[in-house]
Design a protein around this nucleic acid. Structure first.
Length: 669
RNA sequence: GCCGGAGUAGCUCAGCUGGUAGAGCACCUGUCUUGUAAACAGGAGGUCAGGGGUUCGAGACCCCUCUCCGGCUCCA
């Protein structure tokens, strides 16, 4: 008897019955046999998607196979990182008595393993050297990863005897969640050296492959991600196939840390924080310049799309929040105070305020859609442990808007919001990830309402042909939402824009409009913030540009640098000339060397440095040096540019291209 | 909020097993009059996050609080 498998190039390979992945690799060649780590098996006829398996497992007849080696990219990395997690667990078990293991998967940039250490044992990064040392021993021993399929009862017995409560719970859950028609017959155990773990696999043949690894950090993590359960100790690490790749990875991380907006915020003097108001940025002049440029863009683009800007209070009688539902669902995250014995609260959202404006007049179907925009200041008591620079603050300025429309207008309005969002993101070269979040546990409104709202959002996404992820249960308490996410410099994902559908607030506030039939109807509300908040968006912008902003966003667009104080008067006249063009321009007339002035302007990442000395003062010119590209006296584009010429050029870059007038046919949304 | 770590001059950091606080840059003053990434000299600057404790003596050790960092949970 023999079996036939198909190789990636389409060629069939005949093997004896019961042949394994290792046999297949050996049949192809001795080099591949040595390099093989695992094998990807797919069996389209049997409906089996590609699955990476151990080399030691028998291949099914008729399968398509592909040998995984160190060159197989992500799949190979995932494999050895998972191996590394087992090696880590083995080392920790060696070093700490009574430690309980839970789970240890490979993740995007590495791996982790979650442990429960005995009471009184705190593990910190200081312990990493000895843990790593122990890991190296397991790797040097080239322990084989041996898989054993056993009955759930046998596995359970084993882990009960070892007091591995988490493993016992995992087995019980596996058994309980199995389809009653096909009860779970086996679970797999993997053993390397003295360590055995409940694990689905696959693994490389031995621990030897995990040669280039490093532990990264230690963190708390709730068992099963549930904050009501035990907090375990998570140890993060990463692994590569070579020391070189590991070093490159660390180099990348270091470069990423250099663009951290908190670091750049300090270096470029953009904003600061004070212990006296945690989670609340103080915008310094340079940072506010960015804010204002962005705000100008936001304002003009809103106007173009039929939004009318409003401004509303931040402090309200709590009655408003009782009516809106915030009191019931959001109280713990709000700030309250008493004003002359009257309980008041800071708004955590702008919608109830915009609703007051809607209700200030009788509305007709002819008025709809009504679109109110506001750079609305809200306060949210974010838990202390979650604050993070500009990304997670308690004092939030949303680029908010609320659209009041008819049921029929919902989809087109949502589509317009999405297009508007993409228009903005494309200006910065952002490629956001989309999520559709559906009804949460804590919610208001009927099931039919949620059905309709979720359907409308999904409909808009599909009408636009957009790819999105479903995020069940993550909607706002009043309605489902579409969120736009971006990642920061080190890969953390942050929600920026959001488009939320709301049939509930209009009901709670008894919003009405008069229809063509002269009857009263209920409008639908759309809550939308595209950048999300100015704070978070600017945080992302800083990291995106690594502080090297395009001219229209740069806090200082040009700086005039006189070579000596004999040319200060001429330099001031150049500065004044550019100020007249509304440019953000500075003059560095300190008694310092030109080298010093240039160095400091470079460090401030100012786009244009205008050096003026004897020759420039005589000719009415400037010597232009652009940031990052060293200028040259006596040559290059920089020398002898008239102030006129430079002013023209700067004028062309002072505003985002989006802010320049354009014909309605060019409008994106 | 939870787990772990950290907090020394404006910034970046040093400060041994407890013996009474230091560097570079920035700042101020003076000299120099500068041509494309750091002129030279001098000076000033600290309740070592805050509070309590141990000790003859604490920046170092212990406890509490605050803030920050890395995660987890949460995030309208």
């Amino acid at each position: 008897m023999s079996i036939t498998v198909t190789l990636p190039d389409g060629k069939p390979l005949e093997l004896p019955d019961g042949a394994t992945g290792a046999d297949a690799a050996a049949a192809i060649g001795p080099g591949l046999a040595r390099a093989a780590l695992a094998i990807e098996v797919s069996h389209p006829e049997a409906g089996e998607e590609g699955e990476v398996r151990d080399l030691a497992r028998a291949l099914p007849d008729g399968a398509r196979v592909s040998i995984i080696t160190a060159k197989s990219g992500e799949k190979a990395l995932e494999l050895i990182r998972h191996d590394a997690a087992h090696v880590l667990a083995a080392a920790v078990m060696d070093l700490y008595d009574g430690v309980k293991i839970s789970i240890g998967p490979a993740i995007a940039e590495g791996f982790y393993y979650d442990f429960e250490f005995p009471d009184g044992t705190a593990v910190s990064e200081a312990d990493f050297p000895r843990i790593e040392e122990r890991m190296r021993e397991h790797i040097k021993a080239a322990e084989t990863f041996q898989r054993r399929d056993v009955s759930p009862a046998e596995a359970r017995e084993r882990f009960v005897a070892e007091r591995q409560d988490y493993k016992v719970e995992l087995i019980d859950d596996l058994v309980a969640s199995a389809d009653p028609a096909h009860p779970l017959k086996t679970v797999s155990l993997y053993t390397n050296g003295p360590f055995t773990d409940l694990c689905r696999g696959p693994h490389a043949p031995t621990t030897q492959t995990v040669s280039a690894f490093k532990l990264g950090s230690v963190a708390g993590a709730y068992w099963r991600g549930d904050s009501d359960r035990t907090m375990l100790t998570r140890i993060y690490g990463t692994a590569f196939f070579s020391k070189k790749e590991l070093a490159e990875h660390e180099e990348r991380l270091e470069q990423a840390r250099a663009r951290d907006h908190r670091k750049l915020g300090r270096e470029l003097d953009l904003f600061m924080f004070s212990e006296l108001s945690p989670g609340s940025p103080f915008w310094k002049p340079a940072g506010l310049a960015i804010w204002n440029a962005l705000s100008e863009l936001w304002r003009s683009e809103n106007r173009r799309r039929g939004y009318r800007e409003v401004k509303t209070p931040i402090l309200f009688d709590v009655e408003l929040f009782k009516q809106s539902g915030h009191w019931d669902t959001y109280r713990d995250h709000m700030y309250f105070t008493d004003v002359e014995d009257r309980p008041m609260g800071l708004k955590p959202m702008n919608c109830p305020a915009h609703i007051q404006i809607y209700k200030d007049a009788r509305r007709s179907y002819r008025d709809l859609p009504i679109r109110y925009s506001e750079a609305g200041l809200v306060h949210r008591h974010e838990p202390s442990g979650t604050l993070h620079g500009l990304m997670r603050v308690r004092h939030i300025t949303q680029d908010d808007a609320h659209i009041f429309c008819t049921e029929e207008q919902v989809q087109q309005e949502v589509v317009q919001c999405l297009r508007f969002g993409f228009f903005l993101y494309e200006l910065f070269g952002f490629e956001p990830r989309l999520e559709l979040s559906t009804r949460p546990e804590k919610r208001i409104g009927s099931e039919e309402m949620w059905d309709r709202a979720e359907g409308a959002l999904a409909g808009a996404l599909e009408a636009e042909g957009l790819n999105y992820e479903l995020n069940p249960g993550d909607g706002a308490f009043y309605g489902p939402k579409i969120d736009l996410h971006m990642t920061d410099s080190i890969g953390r994902s942050w929600q920026l824009g959001t488009v939320q559908l709301d049939y509930s607030m209009p009901e709670r506030f008894d919003l009405l409009y008069t229809g063509a039939d002269n009857g009263e109807h209920r409008p639908v509300m759309i809550h939308r913030a595209l950048m999300g908040s100015f704070e978070r968006f600017i945080g992302i912008l800083i990291e995106h540009y690594a502080g090297e902003f395009p001219v229209w966003l740069a806090p200082v667009q040009a700086i005039v640098l006189p070579v000596s104080d004999r040319f200060n008067d001429y330099a001031a006249s150049v500065r004044d000339r550019l100020l007249d063009e509304q440019a953000r321009v500075e003059l560095d007339d300190r008694n310092e060397s030109i080298g010093r002035k240039i160095r400091e302007a470079e460090l401030r990442k100012i786009p244009y440095m205008l050096v003026v000395g004897e020759r420039e003062a005589g000719e009415g010119t400037v010597a232009v040096r652009t940031h990052g590209a060293a200028g040259e006296r006596g040559g290059g584009e920089g020398e002898g540019v008239s102030v006129e010429q430079f002013s023209e050029r700067l004028l062309g870059e002072l505003y985002s291209s989006a802010l320049k007038p354009r014909k309605s046919s060019e409008r994106h949304a």
